[in-house]
């Protein structure tokens, strides 16, 4: 029987003074994964955006649980989006969205 795909949700903090839209952000994440692990690696990551709050500069993404370290590495390697200097930090990782929001609650 096919195993159920386990997922992980990552809350990210975007360190950048200028405004960035969600499309640009997700493109940068995809590009970073592809640059480091190639298209084959990126296909295993199962990345998708769940939520983006431009005011708090918080992004929530979903990934396959086997690809968490790969995505974390790729996120750490992002230094620029377009011509804006950016640093992306992982705030929390969780198995459910509910638990993730509980973790990052101020």
């Amino acid at each position: 029987m096919l195993k159920r795909a386990k997922r992980r949700y990552l809350a990210l903090e975007i360190g950048c003074e200028e405004p960035i839209d969600s499309g640009e952000l997700m493109n940068a994440v995809w590009n970073a994964v592809m640059k480091l692990y190639g298209e084959y690696g990126a296909s295993q990551a199962g990345l998708s955006m769940i939520d983006y709050d431009p005011d708090k500069r918080r992004l929530v993404i979903r990934t396959a649980h086997t690809a968490v370290e790969m995505v974390r590495t790729a996120l750490a390697s992002i230094t620029r989006i377009g011509n804006k200097a950016v640093a992306i930090h992982v705030l929390a990782v969780s198995g459910t969205i509910k638990a993730l929001y509980k973790k990052i609650k101020p």
Binding site: E69, T73, A76, A87, V90
Partner: peptide, 23 residues
């Protein structure tokens, strides 16, 4: 030399995966 190039310790450890250092 700039705060944008600073990363969390866990992120540095994740980057070390790229040269097979081990967690």
């Amino acid at each position: 030399s700039d705060e944008r190039l600073m990363r969390k310790p866990q992120e540095l450890a994740a980057l070390a995966n790229l040269f097979d250092l081990g967690q």
